[in-house]
């Protein structure tokens, strides 16, 4: 009995799936089994957006201590507005809108990196300043923007096959690709190496700055993708459409077993943690608690999980990475 338990403990991300299972069971016990499948379908659909934001954050966090992308929410908000404006409700412009949003996100990521690199400031403050500016751009550009997504695109974001959202399947593919990139490509191995030991990576001749730039650009691009899909799913762009992904993107990375100290990432955990968080909200909604209790519980559980998981090395926010 001891061995499997130890093996479990060595794979902290399994806990996130167990947690997801437990909250789902509590919820369906409460409804006496009604809507158990529907609950999963809805959770999978909402998970997609958390997973994409989480993958973006995961790459950045893996770069090492202090690396975090706080501009994701503002980036998602702005990208959603860009996508909707370019698409302008017409089916023929879907690809153009998506590309514009991806470019917008990528530009944000590159700008983030340039601030970090040129000003030698911690990524937290760089991405924070960038997000201030992005927010303003979004407020003045996206004000009163009430363009609906093209019907074809809106349908695509919510279409299901046998109760499984197609978008969720595609996101599993995306996550697998992310895992492959991280573990099997030169770029991915460089990210891990830099996260484990920046000096060693530099001495080994790895293109440290390039890798960091690509990572922030990748995070920004994924933010752009997330914004576009959100605008499709919620039938329109919105300034605060990405707000909740500040906490949840960081939370799923940590709960999913990615090391905050960098150098160790876990893609499967991002999915598990996203399922856990979304099902947790579903459960609290099913139990019929008010918004105050829901916020309170979400916060306590995140703090509790992080405290229980702990971290072996590199606590604190420090260094420019």
């Amino acid at each position: 009995m001891k061995l499997p338990l130890r093996r479990l403990a060595a794979r902290p991300w399994i806990w996130s799936y167990l947690g997801a299972l437990v909250v789902w069971l509590i919820a369906i016990t409460f409804t006496h089994g009604h809507g158990a499948g529907g609950m999963l379908t809805a959770a999978l659909a909402l998970c997609v957006f958390t997973v994409i934001a989480g993958l973006a954050q995961m790459f950045v966090v893996t770069l090492g201590p202090g690396n975090v992308d706080l501009s994701l929410p503002a980036n998602i908000g702005l990208s959603s507005a860009v996508a909707m404006t370019v698409m302008n409700g017409s089916e023929s412009m879907i690809a153009a809108g998506l590309l514009a949003a991806l470019a917008c996100g990528m530009a944000t990521g590159v700008a983030n990196f340039l601030l970090i690199w040129a000003l030698r400031i911690p990524p937290i403050i760089a991405t924070l300043s960038a997000s201030f500016i992005l927010q303003s751009i979004d407020i003045s550009y996206g004000r009163g923007l009430q363009i609906k997504p093209p019907p074809g695109f809106a349908n695509f974001t919510s279409v299901q096959i046998f109760g499984v959202p197609v978008l969720a399947v595609l996101t599993v593919v995306l996550a697998s690709a992310a895992a492959l990139i991280l573990q099997r490509t030169l770029y991915g191995r460089s990210v891990l190496a830099i996260g484990q030991n920046l000096r060693a990576a530099r001495f080994a001749g790895l293109p440290v700055e390039w890798t960091r730039m690509i990572t922030y650009a990748l995070s920004g691009t994924l933010g752009g993708l997330d914004g576009t899909l959100l605008a499709g799913y919620f039938r329109g762009a919105n300034i605060d459409i990405g707000d909740e992904y500040l906490l949840s993107s960081i939370a799923v990375v940590v709960i999913g077993g990615t090391s905050v100290a960098g150098g160790r990432a876990n893609v499967a955990g991002v999915w598990g943690a996203a399922l856990f968080l979304v099902l947790l909200l579903t459960m609290l909604n099913t139990l019929g608690v008010g918004v105050g209790v829901r916020l309170l519980m979400t916060g306590l559980i995140i703090v509790g999980v992080v405290a229980a998981a702990g971290s072996q090395t590199g606590n604190r926010v420090s260094g420019t990475g």
Binding site: I250, V254, L300, V303, G310, T313
Partner: peptide
């Protein structure tokens, strides 16, 4: 104390706490 003893990142703990305070405030 929690942040120190468990060696966990303060950004995540306080990000979680921001929800706790907001929830309490609404209550």
């Amino acid at each position: 104390a929690l942040i120190y003893l468990r060696a966990i990142p303060s950004i995540i703990v306080t990000l979680g706490m921001s929800f706790v305070w907001q929830g309490l405030a609404i209550l």
